[in-house]
Write a protein that binds this DNA or RNA. Structure first.
Length: 345
RNA sequence: GGGUGAGUACCAGAGUGGCCAAAUGGGGCAGACUGUAAAUCUGCUGGUUUUUACCUUCGGUGGUUCGAAUCCAUCCUCACCCA
């Protein structure tokens, strides 16, 4: 299984799309499909034949997180969630049922269940109710999935999402429930949403041992390169995150030697190559001073180069993680590099 | 030579007797960003001090006043107009 990214599918219709999916469909654009050694054959056996021939499978999110970030213009009910477009105020509704349909239409290889992303600082009572809603939606989603067929000539699978906020009892309950609907993989959601990083790691440690080894574990929305390595050490296989592109656009570069804020004055006269240990062509084609200049000047090209670099770096991180797992020295390697990559340059 | 207008912090530009260390932009310096309403947002930007506070600033000098970036006199500089 090659490590790869799904390119941006935001606003881009699948080449075989059979229905107009409408403009309200919002999809993330940086899925980092790191997969631990040993899972490769699983995917081939799972009937997702495109995984064999195409190293860039499509993964679509349900929109559950968008709804989470829409506080103020959303309404959650048992039926689903209604929200207003920030563009024209029009109302839209996500239900587990129409969400399955949408992701069928897009033709994602991996579809994500519709869930409620519970805030990291929610109390147990709220988290309890939130989890009940997510469980109800998951059951309906699974039913709708079973009763519908792919619209294209390949199989699709969906990942249920484990919620439960920062409460171990809820996380365990959610894991047991979600596993009933897990075919090839399962996701952990509702983390990195306000809680302490250590708490996030605790939740991963709580959940992962409950998941069978042959199931891919996808940690949604995480995170920094260090977060990713720590999560891998706790059993996670897949990630996605806006961080490489968003932070890149805002001038932050992640490298093996630490984090650079390209807007900082210290780079103004630094004509060394962008990242000597980088794997992207931009790392050896442009200088730190040039990128600094682009950001200070507000040139879009700076954001483009930074995104390119960060995506390449993220992929390098997970590729090397795989190699060290295979070599048997992952933990030792991880502890050494985490120190380096988290320092400020 | 005559006339009019203007000189405010790095830049532009408000302010026209006390609530002014001086609005607002820009620039500068830093920070944030984790299933993308995000090429975004936040803070600082005369000096000393942790804050209160105090000190030095609004072209120069000298006045008026309890108090001046603001009023008066004068000088300097710039812009425009007339000759």
């Amino acid at each position: 299984m090659p490590v790869g990214t799904v390119g941006s599918v935001k606003g881009v219709y699948h080449r075989d799309l059979k229905e107009d999916i409408g403009a309200e469909i919002i999809l993330g654009n940086t899925y980092h499909l790191y997969l631990r050694p040993g899972l490769d054959t699983l995917y081939k056996a799972g009937g997702l034949h495109r995984f064999e021939s195409w190293d860039r499978p499509i993964l679509t999110d349900s929109g559950g997180f968008q709804v989470f970030s829409l506080t103020g213009i959303r309404k959650l009910t048992r039926e689903g969630c209604t929200f207003q477009s920030h563009i024209d105020g029009s109302r839209h509704t996500f239900t587990p049922e129409n969400n399955v349909h949408t992701q069928r239409v897009i033709g994602a290889d991996i579809m994500m269940a519709l869930d409620e992303c519970c805030p990291g600082d929610a109390d147990h009572n709220y988290a309890r109710k939130s989890l009940d809603l997510t469980k109800n939606w998951l059951e309906r989603y699974a039913k709708s999935f079973r009763e519908s067929d792919p619209l294209y000539d390949y199989q699709q699978t969906f990942f249920p999402i484990i919620q439960g906020c920062t409460y171990k009892d809820l996380r365990l309950e959610a894991t047991e429930h979600a596993l009933q609907f897990s075919e090839l993989g399962i996701a952990i959601g509702g983390l990195a949403v306000g809680e302490e990083t250590e708490v996030m790691y605790e939740m991963i440690e709580t959940v992962c041992p409950q998941i069978p080894q042959d199931r891919a574990r996808y940690l949604m929305g995480v995170g920094t390169p260090a977060n990713i390595l720590e999560a891998i050490s706790r059993g996670i296989d897949m990630f996605d995150c806006v961080m490489p592109t968003r932070n890149g656009r805002n001038g932050m570069l992640f490298t093996w030697n630490g984090i650079m804020n390209m807007r900082n004055a210290k780079w103004e006269q630094d004509f060394s190559e962008l990242d000597p240990s980088g794997t992207s062509f931009v790392d050896h084609t442009y200088t730190k001073a040039y990128l600094h200049h682009l950001f200070k000047s507000g040139e879009m090209f700076g954001a483009m180069l930074a995104s390119e670099h960060n995506l390449a770096f993220y992929l390098d991180v997970v590729r090397q993680a795989r190699e060290h797992i295979q070599a048997g020295d992952f933990l030792q390697w991880k502890d050494a590099v985490v120190k380096r990559i988290t320092q400020r340059m």
